[in-house]
């Protein structure tokens, strides 16, 4: 169970607004977060991952406190065991597809399975600049899964995929998320996207 109760100031075009979230995420659940641009969706994911800190609140995962502003507890990103799919992929230009996964895990069998899952097994020696947008996005997802995270945070993960690829990947991804029991939070700007696939929704105004 992941419990989040935070307050975080957001820089907005018209002054400042505050992001307030008080929510629990059941183990293995898939939650979609959607809302307009600037509503704090990406910031919310960064707060959970520890890449930025809220002004106030607590974040707990499976009984472990990741963040507590009162008790001054702030677990580093490295220790939170999360997977993060960045909106602009954030792939490493110096690494090939395989090296991205080897950087994250030493489990060769797992790497092989991930490559097959993302249909990137024939492109494993390619660097990101030689991959299409969809292939880069798939690699970003595979890299996030490579560490077998307990919590997967995805920022607009399917935006560059064509409908056919998206359907195939989502189906396989759901299987693997359920198999590993990964709690997943997916940010999307499209209210219709992923409908029927997620267990819960969180709307940012």
């Amino acid at each position: 169970m992941i419990t989040i109760n935070i307050e975080k100031k957001l820089k907005a075009y018209h002054g400042q607004q505050v992001l307030r979230v008080n929510r629990q995420f059941a183990p293995g659940s898939i939650t979609k977060v959607y809302g307009p641009s600037g509503s704090g969706k990406t910031t919310f994911l960064k707060v959970i991952s520890g890449l930025t800190n809220p002004e106030r609140g607590t974040i707990k995962a499976d009984g472990v406190t990741w963040f507590d502003s009162t008790a001054k507890i702030n677990l580093s990103t490295q220790k939170r065991n999360i997977g993060f799919v960045f909106q602009q992929y954030a792939l490493f230009p110096n690494m090939t597809v395989r090296q991205h996964l080897e950087y994250a895990t030493a489990d060769v069998a797992w790497i092989k399975r991930l490559l097959l899952l993302g249909s990137l097994d024939t492109l494993e020696t390619h660097k990101p600049e030689y991959l299409s947008g969809g292939q880069q996005q798939r690699l970003a997802i595979l890299r996030a899964l490579a560490t077998r995270p307990k919590l997967l945070l995805m920022d607009e993960p399917f935006s560059a995929l064509d409908p056919k690829t998206k359907t195939g990947l989502i189906s396989e991804l759901k299987t693997i998320l359920k198999e590993l029991g990964i709690t997943t939070i997916i940010v999307s700007h499209n209210p219709q996207e992923l409908s029927g696939w997620v267990d819960d929704e969180l709307v940012f105004e």
């Binding site: 999360i82 490493f92 994250a104």
Partner: peptide
């Protein structure tokens, strides 16, 4: 360099 490169590495558990 984009800040997200280092951030992505941190999320993979790297120092």
């Amino acid at each position: 360099l984009p800040a997200s490169l280092a951030e992505a590495s941190y999320t993979l558990g790297k120092s």
